[in-house]
């Protein structure tokens, strides 16, 4: 099983942070949301999501709480911390700079 490259990994973290910026979600919902919004383009292996989630949690960018879902089951809900929000801004900005640069290169050649 190939490990995701750093780019993909970093991107996944950005996507998670972005997804959580609206409201707390549990893992499955995060995966669904990323798939939906990207128009099913980003097919992530759902399992690898948890590795990223736990790493973000260790970095204190997101925090987790066990709560009951509407269906009455215990689930782990992740939400952004203040540090996470700052990190999201930074990474989003990085990302747009990077994609602009790539666009520029791709379009001029």
């Amino acid at each position: 099983m190939a490990k995701p490259t750093d780019l993909v990994q970093g991107t996944l973290e950005l996507l998670i942070l972005k997804t959580l910026s609206l409201e707390p979600k549990h893992g499955w919902a995060i995966a669904k949301r990323i798939q939906q919004i990207s128009g099913e383009v980003l097919q992530l292996q759902q399992g690898s999501l948890y590795r990223a989630l736990h790493r973000l949690e260790q970095k204190a960018w997101i925090k987790a709480r066990w709560k009951e879902t509407e269906a009455g089951r215990q689930a782990k809900f992740y939400s952004l911390t203040d540090a996470g929000r700052a990190q999201l801004e930074k990474e989003a900005e990085n990302w747009s700079r990077l994609s602009e640069a790539i666009n520029l290169v791709v379009e001029t050649t």
Partner: peptide
């Protein structure tokens, strides 16, 4: 299938705890 090998993924996740 969409999730992947749970044992392996669990191990990887635990690795992030350091």
């Amino acid at each position: 299938r969409t999730f992947g090998n749970p044992t392996f993924l669990k191990e990887e996740t635990r690795d992030t705890w350091g």
